[in-house]
């Protein structure tokens, strides 16, 4: 692994260890632990989205659907079939991967706008499915009483324990993703982003890699969905609507889509904005979201993460 990544990883781990210590002792930000759990869950999805969009150059406006598939599979299997949550999570991954493969093979033959619309359409269809299959999903009002997670009989029902679980998984996924990025597969993805013609001529199986990374990103989203289900204990279709898909893309783009660290930064920033700092704006948060996204795309196309090296240079000089 590159030394810059190693440093950043170390910094992130330290931050994650210190965060609960501070948060739990300062009452004003005591509930930040709860928000950080959601940040972690969205980070899981967005690392996959970053691999797909920033590295392979393929857009998806339907990732809320994969998040929802994981969440609903876990929720339904645990409440209606009393399955073990961990087994249900694995089942969710299997189902989501299968759906992603079936949708991905024809979709990823499409390019640009067509791919965007196809994934958007897919996301809306899945959302309608969650709404309409009342006997399975509880319809628009959803269902509740989903059990929490436990490990070896130790129940993860405190915020702290869930925080540790979620961020442990985020770190593992991050390391896995960084390893993929800095390998022949990562290079194949980036090469097809820059020139599909040349990538093909070098023998890179471009369509296979597009589908592979699409399925991988769906798997990340599915795991995130299962974690979400067991944390909130309640599911309804409105948590997985089309606007969430857009918000996920927004997080990745605002942070900087050509860099997986950008996805983490954007997720952290926009989740805190949405859950905490934008309460001043009440319902008008989408106005602010739209403005932020537009400003970043127009004036900072590489995202906020692009500012980090610049700032650290200024820091060192100062």
């Amino acid at each position: 692994m590159q030394s810059s990544n190693r440093k950043a990883l170390l910094g992130l781990t330290l931050f994650l260890i210190l965060f609960p210590v501070v948060a739990m002792n300062v009452s004003a930000i005591g509930h930040y632990l709860d928000i950080m759990i959601f940040v972690g869950i969205y980070c899981l999805i967005n690392m996959g989205l970053s691999l797909l969009m920033g590295y392979a150059g393929q857009i998806s406006l339907g990732h809320a659907a994969f998040f929802g598939l994981g969440a609903y599979t876990s929720g339904i299997l645990c409440t209606k079939f009393s399955m073990s949550p961990w087994l249900a999570m694995v089942a969710g991954v299997g189902i989501t991967a299968l759906v992603a493969y079936i949708v991905g093979v024809p979709s990823l033959k499409l390019k640009g706008h067509y791919l965007a619309m196809a994934t958007l359409g897919f996301g809306v269809i899945v959302h309608i499915f969650f709404n309409e299959e009342v006997s399975l999903t509880g319809g628009p009002s959803g269902f509740s009483d989903i059990p929490g997670l436990s490990i070896l009989g130790f129940s993860l029902n405190s915020d702290l324990s869930y925080y540790i679980l979620v961020w442990f998984l985020v770190l593992l996924t991050l390391i896995f993703s960084l390893n993929v990025i800095h390998s022949r597969i990562g290079r194949a993805l980036r090469s097809l982003h820059d020139s599909e013609l040349a990538a093909d001529a070098m023998g890179v199986e471009t369509s296979r890699y597009k589908v592979m990374i699409f399925v991988l990103s769906a798997v990340y989203a599915s795991v995130a969905g299962s974690l979400y289900t067991h944390y909130v204990g309640f599911l309804s279709p409105s948590s997985f609507d089309f606007f969430l898909s857009i918000k996920l893309v927004m997080m990745v783009v605002v942070g900087g889509m050509h860099n997986i660290w950008g996805a983490l930064l954007g997720t952290w920033l926009l989740t805190f904005l949405g859950n905490e700092w934008l309460h001043v704006f009440h319902d008008f948060d989408i106005l602010v979201y739209g403005a932020i996204l537009l400003a970043v795309v127009m004036f900072l196309p590489d995202g906020l993460v692009h500012l980090v090296p610049r700032m650290s240079r200024v820091w060192k000089r100062g």
């Binding site: 640009g112 706008h113 857009i246 893309v249 783009v253 979201y289 739209g290 996204l293 537009l294």
Partner: peptide, 10 residues
Amino acid sequence: IIVTIAVSIL
């Protein structure tokens, strides 16, 4: 794509 999406959200 992202710019026109941003405008639509706005």
